[in-house]
Design a protein around this nucleic acid. Sequence first.
DNA 1: GTCTATAGAAGGATAGAC
DNA 2: GTCTATCCTTCTATAGAC
Lengths: 210, 210
Amino acid sequence: MSGLADVRTDNDSPKRLAVLEAAGRLFVTHGYGAVSMDVIAREAGVSKATLYAHFASKDRLFATIITEACHQGVAAATQLAAAEAGTDIRAVLTGLGGRVLRFLLAPRTLAIHRVVIAEVARFPELGAVFYENGPGRSRGQFTAWLQRQTAIGRLAAADPDLAADQFLGMLRGNLYHRALLGIGPPATQDEIDSAAVATVDTFLRAYSAA
Amino acid sequence: MSGLADVRTDNDSPKRLAVLEAAGRLFVTHGYGAVSMDVIAREAGVSKATLYAHFASKDRLFATIITEACHQGVAAATQLAAAEAGTDIRAVLTGLGGRVLRFLLAPRTLAIHRVVIAEVARFPELGAVFYENGPGRSRGQFTAWLQRQTAIGRLAAADPDLAADQFLGMLRGNLYHRALLGIGPPATQDEIDSAAVATVDTFLRAYSAA
DNA sequence: GTCTATAGAAGGATAGAC
DNA sequence: GTCTATCCTTCTATAGAC
């Protein structure tokens, strides 16, 4: 794959957008290998020639899809972080945890994670690009937040990176693990909230300032 | 895919084993879609006709590979659990954590996890079969162990399932997450040991009997 | 930019000889 | 069981007209 990080998105012709929409839906649902350019063209309502007029190759099209998905993930993460303010650490963490977990367990998020993990072997740089633009950035913001809370004496996270990893690891826990494997019915809101509460509970026992 | 859970392995002709070896290596390295039956036959040193004499289809061959990989995972997990005994909870947990994490981060383990996650969309039953035979069984054994330790007063894990998920979630943390995405160099022994120590540290602050 | 039609290659699976 | 040779489908990508 050439130029994964250098994908233009300034062109917004209707046909191009239709291709992006169809390809995005198909790729994240069925994976890279199982989706043909014929099917994408048909679903988008354009001819293959038009498709290739906008995207030089299947690789490039895939790169564009994943890059845009990353940016959406960043936007979501930023929203999450910005929405959290308040003095009750437990309430803030629980709210944040619930929102993050809901995002991680959303069918679209899971599908994107699956397809990225799937194609790491084929496109080695894909994993890093995805991580830096998505989960890594969220983690960075969370780490900074933990550090600020520690600085003002509301938490005792001497190693904010480690604390962030442990919090997020516990949060993902079994729900995310099983969801990634497509096991069982989707998690209910109660399960998600309960997992967030339990995570915060354990986390605060280790990192509470008091 | 038909009969994922019902794969015979009683035939051990040399050619058949050569096919299994080559296909296993190729599938976990490059994924299902990127490996052709031609390449498998060539790598195994047999003709395609011979390949199809032993495996009815590419699907069936893939199912056999993954099923056998699951059984290896179960064997590894059982070994891990059996090896742990002792009275110093912290030492036992740290040893166990380090071994589990080393197993999870092994290139072959990561490759299998990647290919299973990748093909969940194509083979819906694959995720459940893999989980039940691999990670789920390990988790069950760990849960039972936590429960016993709680019963004899060495731990205070009122909800052993939850405690197991939190322990394993923290243990995977960022190392497994990044490794699955193929980011950066493989984790060093020091990083693994350090992650295990940190996980046990946080875990025991929440679930210590004292 | 957009289409129809097709080239050229590769894939899964099989026929028939031994 | 094993091989060589091949069929048929599907795939990516492009040529050429409008």
